[in-house]
Design a protein around this nucleic acid. Structure first.
Lengths: 240, 240
DNA sequence: AAGTGGTCTAGACCACGAA
DNA sequence: TCGTGGTCTAGACCACTTA
């Protein structure tokens, strides 16, 4: 028998009701005392469930008025860490990967600083090209601390979903990330690899991936501008 | 006398202690019962404060072990909604704005759909150029529903910080946003306005800003790639 | 077995908004 | 004034980790 906390049951039921439009946009959720009785739980439990919905943008709480249902279709998911491939897959593309090479090398100063290791320590570099429906989308280089992924360079894989591969094979999970995104023009090497003209506008992304507060990987991507776009959802205005 | 909730006091004190390194990275925060006595509050209050720290990436809670301090320098702020200008200011640049024009126009189909109004309804378009330390950084167009900002076109302002202007003058606050970012090459008009060569790589951003779950504005930006970069912080891996 | 965080209760009083 | 969400308490039991 699976043990499911009461607040999660309440959360799931309310969320389903909102998603399936059993409450209309702009309507008020039943008041907290009503939900207490309906679900036979305490106020604390109701509030925890509603707080979760609120943080995820399904409802907004208004003191003195009630809890209003928002239009979840426009304000879906917050910013969870996902890879480009996962994003493309969710959009319905067929994503394939060609792994060009996997090699062990010494970390440059910049890389070492981001990974918080010493300059010159061993890192594994995985270089790949990502395709969506057969068209080249991005050149990817992933740098991992060699100690954490021992033997990965001997695997003969395409690493189609690298994050999932790391979770399943090395019990490493990336639960936070910092992306830095800018634009640049394609040089001749990139142009050839991505099958675009030289000078074509590319998105250049550098991601530092963290697991439990420690840097795990650095990803460097060059993405074809007119074949991909980042969608970023933000919640809350910096108040402090 | 300002009324400050107990959980916020606890949160502020713990956060300051972590930021000022009174606890070292990797150390454990005092256990919940200890904090209860120290701050003379109930466990619920302690937990609310620690939960906030946890959501913001300052600590990680480990059942059976304790609450570990993370390195906040690497995982600073989450994704709060901020404008380009605010970001540049925080980096120490002197940000100036030249307002080219403010005009009332009819919404295109795409714009109307994003703002959830009818195609052809009146919108206000504010077009500006943003400079950092005197160098052109971005061309910005902001579209607002005309009804919400009556008379804004008659103001003779540069709207240096538009979001703050809206908060102070129209009591409109943008508390959530969806950004779509891609790359493109500068056309001749953009090149001249931004003082870059034609074909130069630009970041193209389209933002829909929301207040209380309803779309408030659409911002369209063209940003010089090598003069600006987006930094995006993400927390949590999409589990559902 | 002891200590940690995770869940939950029943009840209290406060602050805000509408009638 | 009344109903709403906001804050807070004291105490209980559970689940996980370490020793």
């Amino acid at each position: 028998m699976e043990r499911i906390p009461a607040y999660l049951k309440v959360y799931d039921i309310l969320k389903r009701q909102i998603v399936e439009r059993e409450y209309g946009v702009g309507d008020l959720l039943p008041a907290e005392p009503v939900l207490e009785k309906k679900f036979k739980v305490s106020r604390t439990t109701v509030r925890k469930a509603v707080d979760m919905l609120s943080r995820e943008g399904f409802v907004i709480k208004k003191q003195g008025i009630g809890t209003e249902i928002l239009d979840h279709k426009t304000m879906q998911n917050l910013n969870y860490v996902t890879s480009i491939s996962e994003t493309l897959q969710k959009k319905g593309y067929t994503v394939t990967t060609k792994c060009l090479r996997v090699e062990v090398m010494e970390a440059s100063a910049h890389l070492a600083s981001d990974l918080r290791i010493k300059s010159g320590e061993k890192v594994v570099c995985i270089q790949r090209i990502k395709f969506a429906d057969g068209k080249a989308i991005a050149i990817m280089k992933n740098f991992l601390v060699a100690d954490m992924v021992e033997g990965i360079e001997k695997r003969n894989e395409d690493f189609n979903l690298l994050y999932r591969f790391l979770e399943e094979n090395y019990n490493i999970s990336i639960d936070a990330a910092r992306d830095t995104i800018t634009a640049k023009s394609a040089n001749s090497v990139e142009a050839e690899m991505l099958d675009v003209p030289v000078g074509c506008a590319l998105l250049a992304m550098r991601r530092i991936g963290y697991g439990q507060g420690k840097p795990i990987c650095v990803d460097v991507l060059s993405i074809v501008g007119d074949r991909y776009e980042f969608v970023i959802n933000m919640n809350g205005r910096d108040s402090r």
